[in-house]
Nucleic acid binder design. Structure first.
Lengths: 147, 147
DNA sequence: ATACAACTTAGAGTTAACTGTAAGTCAATA
DNA sequence: TATTGACTTACAGTTAACTCTAAGTTGTAT
């Protein structure tokens, strides 16, 4: 089963513009063309594009993803480099999750803060509340955040 | 204790350019000026800037952060709007964490894949490995991801 | 064979969030 | 008081990742 760029775009939830951009940037050199030059996407290509989207989701810039694709096209001589890249990404994603969890602590505190402020009609109530009057989990959060 | 823009930048791990940009965009209207027009940052401002950085860390664009600051400057009549904004952010951050955890599953699978490929000198070993020959946690991961 | 929709490339335009430059002003020290 | 380094504004430049336009080509349906 082969797909045109529009069909591939629907399947991948991208636009044809984006797929052509990825092609120009060297992210999908394995996508073949018809005799007339029309891109023909095959099933196997979608797995690759999903992997590219996964790397993008880690915040990896397109140029670094291209580096990885270049290594892949080079064959087994680049296995170590590709392995190391994934381990580095693993570290970074674990850090991102930790960081987002800290961010979430602040947001959760603010949710309580504004719940309390809305109920009172003024921010001075949560602002001046003594720690011992706060719910346990909020007191914990307040201790963790640095606002 | 008052701080110049350079001192404030060091304290917040930002550049003076960025702080001026935030000021121009209306993110820190509460920062006062000396008679000569020089910005004078006070301790209280840093808490605010930390909150702005927290909102930025959730992926919130500067224009939406400005909306929140505008609501703050308007006073208690905007409490409900501010509360709702934090609840919306909470949802989004929880989604981001979930999404990153799925991304991490794919990365972890690829770490195993390339560990195995490097050991064998070729990707065909992990590529053709039967599920029952994989470690349990890898088989689990492989079932979860969609490459 | 002829339409005509969907494809192609090259290159320009957009957006967000900075980042830097130029010209001029402020403030601390010799 | 004069110098000098840090500040000010206005505005231009940068970067990443698209997004769109124009001019031309391909492929399918009559």
């Amino acid at each position: 089963m082969l797909y045109t760029i529009s069909e591939a775009a629907v399947k991948m939830r991208l636009t044809p513009y984006t797929l052509r951009y990825y092609d120009r940037e060297g992210l999908i050199p394995f996508v073949e063309r018809s005799a007339g030059g029309v891109r023909m996407f095959k099933e196997k290509d979608f797995g690759w594009i999903r992997l590219i989207e996964c790397m993008k989701a880690t915040g990896m810039p397109i140029k670094e993803i291209k580096q990885f694709v270049d290594w892949y096209m080079e064959g087994n001589s680049t296995l170590q480099l590709r392995r190391d890249m994934f381990y580095e990404r693993k570290e970074l994603v674990e850090e991102q999750i930790e960081s987002l969890q800290k961010t979430l602590d602040t947001i959760k505190y603010k949710c309580w803060f504004y719940d309390t402020a809305v109920a009172a009609g003024t921010t001075s109530v949560p602002k001046n509340m003594k720690p011992e009057d706060m719910p346990d989990e909020i007191r914990q959060l307040k201790g963790k955040i640095d606002l």
